[in-house]
């Protein structure tokens, strides 16, 4: 069978080669499509830390995706309308700078993940899924009623935010930026997974009682994983909003949370590159099948069914011949 490392490299090189080819043949839409896959992959890498290593099936990760999106939307909206944001007496100017927006997105998502995690981690299993789902719905309906920032219609941002030294309006440049961030996030994930924290978290998923009896607190380990996970997904949300130059309550929708889980399962739960391969396949199917039929989700469902029944390790498990032990 194929070594996992090789599969990973091929995936990464493919992500690089397709847009470059698209530049040569002048197909900017393909670049946008691949950028979308890269951003979804970042979001799913975030979720995979909670889900794959920590065993936390969060059906509310769209909360962080949406927070990232609205962090971008609100800051850029104030910048483009030359107004400032009044927050309990604090006057915050808008900004069109990506690094600043990313930082805000990461910090606020991490904070939200901490609060949601603190409450949700009192439960486990189905109850955990339901509570995270409930939080997701809360944010969704809040965004719909938040008329100051577009309510149901969402917010349009006319010009993509800037990054020092780059022209982010050029698709390939924005793509490059997202790909670098994906690599950074993957690298962080890889380090974390092999670090003492990852080892303990991995054990906390499998045998929480054992983790307790060696003097560690499994809930605290999972909470920290949830915060890191939420922060990464939040960053992806900010990028996603910048890709579309638009944010709307759908970024908070539970369907999006579900899609993130689905693409991790397709790629391989707990595998470093599972989210990457899952996201690429998901976007490709969405594009090709979506072009053929309005009901492409049916086929996606069939593929998902086949993977859950016959390839528990996802695509990566199938290629490397190593069955994923968890889910």
């Amino acid at each position: 069978m194929i070594p996992e490392r090789l599969v990973n490299w091929v995936a990464l090189l493919g992500l690089l080669a397709v847009p470059l080819w698209a530049v040569v043949v002048d197909e900017p839409f393909t670049i946008t499509l691949v950028t979308r896959a890269v951003i979804l992959a970042i979001a799913a890498v975030g979720l995979n830390i909670a889900l794959g290593i920590g065993g936390l099936v969060s059906l509310g990760h769209a909360v962080f995706f949406g927070i990232g999106g609205y962090a971008m939307g609100i800051l850029a909206y104030h910048a483009q309308t030359f107004t400032s944001l009044n927050l309990i007496g604090l006057v915050i100017p808008g900004t069109k700078s990506m690094p600043v927006i990313w930082l805000v997105a990461i910090v606020i998502s991490a904070l939200a993940a901490w609060i949601i995690g603190l409450l949700s981690l009192r439960t486990s299993g189905v109850y955990f899924i339901m509570i995270t789902l409930a939080f997701g719905q809360m944010f969704f309906y809040f965004a719909i009623s938040w008329s100051a920032y577009g309510g149901e219609d969402g917010l349009s941002i006319y010009v993509r935010n800037g990054f020092p030294g780059l022209n982010t309006l050029v698709p390939i440049q924005f793509f490059g930026l997202c790909l670098v961030l994906l690599c950074v996030v993957l690298f962080l994930n890889a380090r974390l997974q092999n670090a003492p924290f990852g080892l303990a978290l991995n054990a906390a998923r499998q045998v929480p009682t054992r983790v307790e009896t060696v003097g560690l607190n499994p809930v605290r380990l999972k909470l920290v994983a949830f915060v890191i996970s939420g922060a990464i997904t939040g960053l992806a949300g900010a990028l996603f909003a910048d890709l579309n130059r638009f944010v709307s309550p759908t970024m908070f929708s539970w369907q999006l949370s579900g899609e993130l889980i689905v693409l991790i399962i397709i790629g391989g739960v707990g595998r470093l590159y599972g989210p990457v391969i899952g996201a690429c396949l998901f976007v490709a199917l969405e594009h090709w099948l979506g072009g053929l039929t309005e009901f492409w989700h049916v086929y996606l469902g069939l593929i998902l069914l086949a993977i859950v029944l016959f390839a528990r390790g996802g695509i990566i498990g199938l290629l490397t011949g190593k069955e994923g032990a968890h889910v």
Partner: peptide
Amino acid sequence: LGALGASGRPWQF
């Protein structure tokens, strides 16, 4: 994992 618990330092990433 046991040694890690005894060390009390799981917060290394």
